[in-house]
């Protein structure tokens, strides 16, 4: 069994809204799978199905070899879930929250106490451990929530948008925590709307959009799909931009050229940035076009999303929102 998760043809609809549409997914044991998609893509729905909270409309899935519907009860002992909103009790202390989670995993009392202390240390919550959670910052709450979901040392953990709503520093801290987890051999499935986050944490990325898997692979593979590199030219004079674009077009891999008039920018996708850049400069020079700035840029996952769906992640999210209304 080298797959921690196997999802086969899972669909889920809420009335007429199709939240998941024939999703297939395999996650290697001990790896981090990043589920990437804009708001409303169906990430939470998939996580809820895999954590036995929701029955799929059709299809099947196993987690750690357990069927998520038929073996739900046993499966729950082996998974941890940190949901989209931190499920920590405001009136209990940090330690009590972890303790309660451990007891509800049916761990022996002694072991919970030991484990709680370990987790509090690991997540840098020792100072606040015996204060009530009401006074915790957003980052602390998320860390506590994560700690509580790890109390039973589950071999499989689900993190639903673990850093949404956190400030940049807390986000970096949480990333470190997640990296540590992985180094201990836990399999992680994490969802995110941040392309950068998936790039940073995940071994493999599954991009989903409107309930469908639209791409799968390592960050590098996905970047490759979007073209390997970009050349960006900023002209000094807006009048020159069309001419500059027609020059650039000749070098483009797909004979296409993006123009952003407001920013006086034009860009093309190429295979070997550095050597083509030299030729571009020469041609612009002969055309007598004054250049303000030029750069070879690595593609970001935003470019990937654009290449895969024809729209940016932000546009996709607004679209799904409109569909709801």
């Amino acid at each position: 069994m080298d797959h921690a998760i196997e999802v086969r043809n899972i669909s889920k609809s809420y009335g007429s809204v199709v939240a998941l549409d024939n999703v297939d997914l395999d996650v290697q044991r001990g790896s981090v799978m990043g589920l990437l998609g804009p708001n409303g893509a169906g990430k939470t729905t998939l996580v809820r199905i895999l954590t036995t909270l929701l029955r799929p409309s059709s299809g099947s899935a196993t987690v750690l070899g357990y069927d998520v519907v038929r073996h739900a009860r046993h499966l729950r002992s082996y998974i941890g879930l940190a949901g989209q909103s931190a499920a920590v009790d405001d009136l209990l202390t940090g330690r009590e929250n972890i303790h309660m989670a451990g007891r509800l995993y049916h761990m022996p009392k002694r072991q919970v106490q030991k484990r709680a202390q370990e987790l509090l240390e690991q997540f840098d919550l020792v100072d606040a451990a015996d204060r009530s959670v009401k006074g915790y910052s957003g980052g602390m709450r998320r860390r506590l929530d994560l700690a509580a979901s790890l109390v039973a040392n589950p071999p499989m953990i689900f993190l639903d948008e673990p850093t949404t709503g956190l400030d940049p520093r807390s986000r970096l801290e949480l990333w470190d925590v997640i990296r540590n987890l992985v180094s201990e051999g836990t399999t992680v499935l994490l969802t995110t709307q941040y392309l950068e986050e998936a790039d940073q944490l995940a071994d493999e990325i599954t991009v989903i959009d409107l309930g469908k898997v639209i791409a799968q692979g390592t960050a590098d593979e996905l970047k490759h799909q979007a073209g390997s590199e970009f050349i960006e030219i900023t002209v000094r004079d807006v009048e020159d931009i069309r001419r500059a674009a027609s020059v650039l077009e000749n070098f483009a891999e797909n004979n296409e050229c993006d123009i952003d008039e407001e920013a006086r920018k034009t860009s093309i996708m190429v295979q070997d940035g550095a050597s083509i850049m030299v030729q571009v400069v020469r041609s612009l020079d002969t055309e007598d076009i004054a250049v303000a700035n030029m750069a070879v840029r690595q593609p970001t996952l935003d470019d990937v999303f654009l290449a895969l769906t024809g729209r940016t992640a932000e546009e996709a999210a607004t679209e799904s929102e409109q569909e709801q209304n």
Partner: peptide, 13 residues
């Protein structure tokens, strides 16, 4: 409302 029940329901309790 606060998502507690999701946590509880994912536990073997």
């Amino acid at each position: 409302q606060k998502g507690f029940v999701d946590r509880y329901r994912s536990l073997p309790m």
